[in-house]
Nucleic acid binder design. Structure first.
Length: 791
DNA sequence: GCCTTGAAGTTACCG
DNA sequence: ACCGGTAACTTCAAGGCG
């Protein structure tokens, strides 16, 4: 019989000395099913040394056959960096043997290198059989007994799955969102000691459950959670930082209680896997925090903030409890209800985030080929790489090894000096997908690169400006093929989208798909210049930016010769006065000259620059204001300073009245002096980017971080520290930086710091260019000290 | 020993 | 654990001065 299966998860087991791949998913009838695949065997390649014949190399492998259970040794024809190559394919019985066998093969004097020996077995299967997670496949199967697996149907495959690219529908997925709260009277909770007190759950069936501990005993709570998961039997489990907190906590808690967290569809517990995420066999465990990291607009990525940003739940409409205070709400019977509400709001937020994020995650998974639970956890580089690996296999290209290399810097893009001041009626012209298109049009790729010592006729190659790197015009290189496909498929999707109702379900699916394609295409240039990349080639990245610089320089000259004044430009954009016919002409010229598309992106009624690059603000026709690079959008300035700057910008751009802005600033300063500004607006957030001891300089946020540690909080690399500046003896700012959580009274605040180092700089950044002097900003109530007066 | 100054360290941004 | 280019802040140490 034939079934159609939407693939949710993949793993493998060794059964009776045979590897068995398991494809977990949902059938077109809506059944949860697993398809077992036998017969696929692990393999890798050995490349003989240049002076060794392939026969001799094969001969030298023979002694390894019995020890490592080698099944076959074959001569095969492949391509390596575009060049035909004959290599030895070594197939063995069991996946765990591969690492040892690989080492043994590498030791042979006949062998130069080993390729593709570091690809996990089930991923190898997905690559070779052209199978895509989160996509439909048709498989010829036979029914088998269910025996111990939590699914409706178990099958054995009797054909290879066939990818059904036309079938874009996503099945009805059972989603379970969860969140845990822990008892934490002594700072950060410790699983060996502190129980879980609440597990909140929300499912797509509409069920919301707040499971609670029996006072300080969480055994029954965890039991109930396990039962709930298994009885609801979700396809997808979502959480917020569940890979970083909830799963490790629950697992360690279970260990302490001698319990098993058996919630997988094969009966096991979550297990830590590649990319540090937790894998739950047969389900997809997705950590939405991984996707929140890609939302630069949200500076402090707490669940509340992300939920508010995505329009899921406003902070003003939910219960908020300071993390360190949770235990008080648990211990106090009158407050406990509030804690339940808090837990409910958290899980509602997670569920809502899931609705916003999962459609994209699903498309990303199906495009790059990583299972849904891994695709979020994998870094951008690995996402690109899996896509490339799949494509390489299709092209008969061998996958290069991951090798350690030294970091070699190279030149990047051009940034123009802006013309400072206020400009009216300015259009921003953007090259669409500049780097991918340069790579395509110049055929830039590791396999088309011609090294300096190689002689080749000049008309056969493209030569990069400045750096002189040469790339063969033909045949199409790896990057060209891969990027060409990404962009082409994206264009096809966008064409279909135009025929659809933007509110339709189909439209949403395609929208997310084209977005995922764009993300991968745009990351490919960065990938090729990443020293950790399998397909790294410095010359590839270097040539791409060199052509980019040339194009933007020529574009500027073309604009100038058309009589268009260029105000600013960065990498792939130029800002010019909007004179419609000239701009139109310029776009046509560019398209003709470079074969690249340029689109008038934004029109600013007014745009303001200081002398600094990468920082400006502008007024759009619809009245919105863009702020780029300035303090107002930076996460490491106090909300107060950001608000002041934003307001100043708004007044200046919309009303053109700097004196009104001055009044606003000095009123704000007065308000601060009069303690009318809440402490929350004075918090400065900065990330801890390394271990505290590794810092060479005594910075404010590290000093604050140390104080947090002293107070019993746990910190991890990457955490954001929120601190305020308080009145304290000490020369350095760091001496006055206090975690805001530990500051009880607004009177402790060093008001002068906030005036001189936050409000005034943020406001002056703009107002300086309107002739305003710092002294004009200070509040009416301000009395200069004698020292300052004479100083 | 004190003060100035510029380099270094650090973070977060732009495209 | 995708790139280079950039601004801005604080700390720190060197250099100049007396």
């Amino acid at each position: 019989m034939k079934i159609k299966l939407w693939i949710l998860d993949v793993n493998y087991e060794v059964v009776g000395n045979e590897p068995e791949i398991r494809l977990w998913g949902i059938t077109s009838e809506g059944k949860r099913a697993v398809v077992k695949v036998r017969g696929f065997k692990p393999y890798f390649y050995a490349v003989p040394k240049a002076n060794v014949s392939i026969e001799k190399a094969i001969g030298s492998l023979k002694p390894l056959i019995s020890q490592y259970r080698i099944l076959s040794i074959d001569r095969v024809q492949r391509k390596y960096y575009g060049k035909p190559i004959e290599v030895i394919k070594i197939t063995c019985q069991l996946p765990p043997t591969v690492p040892q066998l690989r080492e043994a093969v590498l030791k042979l004097k006949t062998i130069e290198d080993v390729l593709e020996a570091d690809i996990r077995f089930y991923m190898r299967y997905l690559i070779d059989k052209d199978i895509y997670p989160c996509a439909w496949h048709e498989i010829e199967v036979e029914r088998e007994s269910i025996r111990g697996l939590s699914v409706d149907e178990v099958y054995r495959a009797i054909s290879d799955p066939k990818y059904l690219s036309e079938m874009t529908r996503i099945p009805d997925l059972k989603v379970l969102a969860f969140d845990i709260e822990c008892y934490n009277p002594r700072g950060t909770p410790k699983p060996q000691r502190d129980p879980v007190i609440i597990i909140s759950v929300k499912t797509d069936s509409g069920k919301e459950e707040i499971l609670t501990a029996d006072d300080h005993n969480d055994r029954n709570l965890i039991r109930s959670f396990i039962d709930l998961v298994n009885s609801y039997d979700p396809d997808i489990i979502i959480g917020y930082n569940n890979n970083g907190f909830d799963w490790p906590y629950l697992l360690n808690r279970c260990k302490a209680l001698h319990m098993k967290l058996n919630i997988s569809r094969a009966g096991g517990s979550p297990a830590q896997s590649v990319y540090g995420h937790f894998s739950i066999v047969g389900r997809a465990n997705v950590d939405l925090y991984d996707f929140a990291k890609d939302m630069p607009e949200v500076k402090v990525k707490t669940l509340e903030n992300v939920a508010e940003y995505l329009g899921v739940l406003k902070k003003s409409e939910r219960v908020l409890i300071e993390g360190s205070e949770l235990y008080k709400y648990w211990d106090n019977p009158e407050k406990r209800k509030t804690l339940y509400d808090y837990a409910r709001d958290d899980v509602k937020s997670i569920y809502g985030l899931g609705e916003k994020i999962l459609p994209f995650a699903i498309q990303l998974s199906s495009i790059v080929g990583l299972p849904l639970d891994q695709v979020g956890a994998a870094s951008v580089g690995f996402r690109v790489e899996w896509y490339l690996m799949k494509q390489a296999y299709k092209l008969g290209e061998l996958i290069p090894n991951r090798v350690e290399r030294p970091y070699t810097p190279y030149k990047g893009a051009i940034v123009l000096k802006p013309k400072p001041g206020l400009h009216e009626n300015i259009v921003v012209l953007d090259f669409s997908a500049m780097y991918p298109n340069i790579m395509i049009s110049k055929n830039i790729s590791p396999d088309t690169y011609v090294p300096p010592y190689e002689e080749v006729s000049p008309d056969e190659v493209y030569v990069a400006p400045e750096v002189g790197h040469r790339f063969r015009k033909k045949p199409p290189g790896f990057y060209k093929q891969v990027l060409g496909k990404l962009l082409q498929v994206r264009n096809e999707i966008r064409k279909i989208m135009k025929t659809l109702d933007p509110h339709s379900y189909e439209y949403r699916v395609l929208y997310e798909r084209q977005r995922a394609l764009k993300v991968i295409a745009n990351a490919t240039y960065g990938y090729c210049g990443w020293i950790g990349a399998r397909w790294y080639k410095r010359e590839v990245a270097e040539a791409t930016t060199a052509w980019g610089r040339e194009i933007i320089k020529k574009t500027i000259n073309m604009a100038k010769s058309l009589g268009l004044e260029v105000i600013y430009g960065d990498t792939d954009s130029i800002f010019v006065r909007y004179i419609e016919d000239k701009v139109k002409k310029l776009c046509e010229l560019i398209e003709k000259e470079f074969g690249l598309r340029v689109k008038p992106d934004k029109i600013y009624i007014k745009v303001f620059f200081t002398e600094a690059k990468k920082r400006y603000c502008g007024l759009l026709p619809d009245g919105r204001i863009d702020v780029v690079g300035l303090e107002a959008i930076r996460g490491d300035w106090s909300e107060l300073a950001k608000e002041v700057q934003e307001k100043v910008i708004e007044i200046v751009l919309k009303e053109g009245d700097p004196y009104k802005a001055v009044k606003y600033v000095s009123d704000t300063i007065s308000a601060l002096r009069n303690k009318k500004i809440p402490l929350s607006k004075l918090i400065i957030w900065k990330s801890v980017t390394k271990e505290l001891d590794k810092y060479e300089v005594k910075t404010a946020h590290v000093a604050a971080a140390r104080r947090l540690l002293e107070a019993g909080y746990r910190l991890e690399i990457g955490d954001k520290i929120g601190y305020v500046i308080v009145k304290r003896p000490g020369e350095k700012l760091a001496d006055k930086a206090m975690p805001y959580i530990l500051v009880k009274d607004i009177d402790e605040i060093d008001v002068d710091y906030y005036i001189k180092k936050q409000i005034i700089p943020a406001a002056m950044r703009i107002l300086e260019y309107f002739g305003i002097k710092e002294s004009q900003l200070e509040g009416a109530t301000y009395q200069k000290s004698l020292l300052e007066f004479f100083g």
